[in-house]
Design a protein around this nucleic acid. Structure first.
Length: 493
DNA sequence: CTAGGGTTAG
């Protein structure tokens, strides 16, 4: 906590000890000594703590360091929440004397730049892929389209899809379905449906196209619209499949039409359309969220008799709804039951249990489960940290929240946008000058890492700093705000 | 990354 207050610059977050250790390993590389190890964790720390680009380049270009696309991708993944550093790393390797980036690393870089809304860099990367004859691939376009749509530029995304072939990437039914899906997932169903009507004939729309659109309506809780679309499909001579039925089932639950969902489920069973684990998981979850725990359990118990084994996701659904609508103790009983049956819980399982415990005020047991995760080769992820940080702060144990935050910075799980938002809000509860100072530093750090705070966050922090006499930091943040305003920071390639 | 099931808060 106090280390946090004292750290002068953007990297105040990294624990001092770790920092000096890594810096010394950096200087070592300029003299003929052992080569830097090639494991992703060490390399990621090295990139995060380096302060001098030239030394870092030297280190990463070291001939004994054997780069592979897998290694590069692993590092990019680890640096996902530190977008500028990630792109910087990508760029250094772009100039490596012998190594050449793979298509998937390019896609990572495109995704990062697009998330920063730095479209100039996005297109530079696309042209570079093209000149290296690596791509762009349909996946590259899916990434770009998704980012444009989520930045509120749906029309732009459609245009880019329509111009894919100009970049040497053929338009297929698959890519058509992808753009429809991207639009639907961002709740632009009308737009998707218009595109579907205009070009569905040309691309020979199939059951996937119809399912995507129907699911889009379901996401808007417009089950009837979804059913209309499917009627149209049947009229065109295309048969619904299990995915179709499952998405309608989910749609009924989502729209609060629980009894319709149940009748639909019974109909599916009666018609012998070979319902699967997804069907059952949907029903267990659907009943659970409306508090129908008995029915959820009945369905869960019944699936085995029907010859369908639950999956980890099914257990996760049951455990979650028990936490929410029943009690954590019963949820943990199910958790233990799944272990006894030989299932391997994943990070979602743990996160669900941890949230349940936090919600019940059992913070210590929640922490215990986080430690247990590691024994199950299931490292805590950013969601795990966010849950614990949030509940610690809500309970007024802000120091403990900050402790966890610092552990993230030094470990292999970097904080994301949610982490910063949660923590910054928490800095207002005690109305202490020191806390506001931390909030200011966090704000600066998040911008440094490619996350854009909302205007409201800026104003809250500024007000707080001025009220508590932190004029200096307030000034710095004002400059920051005007510098990043609405324009994205551009990355120098 | 051609579609359906588990994580997140008011």
């Amino acid at each position: 906590m106090f280390a946090l207050l004292r750290r002068p610059s953007n990297h105040f977050h990294v624990l001092p000890l770790l920092r000096s250790r890594l810096l010394s390993s950096l200087t070592v590389t300029t003299t003929p000594s052992p080569p830097p190890p090639a494991d992703p964790a060490t390399l990621t720390s090295l990139i995060l703590t380096s302060t001098d680009p030239r030394t870092l380049t030297q280190t990463l270009h070291c001939p004994t360091l054997h780069w592979t696309p897998q290694l590069v991708d692993q590092i990019l993944k680890r640096l996902w929440n530190h977008a500028f550093k990630a792109l910087h790393f990508f760029n250094i390797l772009s100039h490596h004397p012998t190594y050449t980036h793979s298509l998937s690393s390019f896609d990572h870089a495109v995704d990062l730049a697009a998330r920063l809304r730095d479209y100039k860099t996005v297109w530079t990367l696309v042209y570079r892929m093209k000149s290296l004859r690596l791509g762009p691939s349909p996946k590259t376009f899916a990434i770009i389209a998704e980012r444009y749509v989520s930045a509120g530029k749906a029309d732009r995304a459609v245009k880019i899809f329509l111009s894919m072939h100009e970049h040497g990437c053929r338009q297929t039914l698959n890519s058509f379905n992808t753009i429809l899906d991207v639009l639907c997932k961002e709740k632009k169903v009308e737009k998707a449906y218009n595109l579907f009507k205009a070009l569905g004939g040309k691309f020979k729309a199939d059951v996937v196209s119809y399912n995507v659109i129907a699911n889009g309506w379901c996401l808007m809780k417009r089950t009837n619209k979804a059913l209309e679309v499917l009627k149209e499909m049947v009229d065109r001579g295309l048969d619904p499949n299990l995915t179709t039925y499952n998405l309608i089932l989910k749609g009924y639950f989502r729209a609060g039409q629980t009894e319709e969902a149940w009748r639909f489920f019974l109909e599916m069973k009666k018609r012998k359309c070979e319902i699967d684990v997804v069907t059952y998981t949907t029903v267990v979850h659907g009943f659970g969220v409306v508090g129908e725990i008995k029915r959820a359990r009945n369905v869960f118990d019944g699936m085995v008799k029907d010859g369908v084994l639950p999956s980890v996701a099914t257990y996760n659904a049951l455990i979650q709804v028990l936490c929410k609508k029943d009690c954590v103790e019963n949820a943990i009983l199910v958790f233990e039951e799944m272990l006894r049956k030989g299932y391997v819980p994943n990070s979602t399982t743990y996160n669900v249990v941890i949230r349940g415990l936090c919600h019940a005020g059992e913070m210590e047991r929640a922490m215990e489960f986080m430690r247990r995760m590691k024994d199950d080769e299931c490292e805590p992820n950013v969601q795990t940290y966010n849950i614990l940080i949030r509940y610690f702060c809500d309970a007024g144990e802000i120091e403990k929240g900050l402790d966890l935050f610092e552990k993230m910075g030094s470990g292999d799980c970097l904080p994301n946008l949610d982490t910063y938002n949660v923590l910054i809000s928490a800095m207002f509860v005690r109305k202490k000058s020191d806390d506001l100072f931390v909030a200011g530093k966090l704000l600066i750090e998040m911008v440094d890492r490619g996350f854009m705070p909302r205007k409201l966050t800026f104003n809250r922090v500024l007000d707080g700093l001025l009220l508590t006499g932190n004029q200096g930091l307030a000034k710095e943040i004002l400059r920051l705000q005007s510098r990043c305003g609405r324009l994205p920071r551009q990355f120098k390639l």
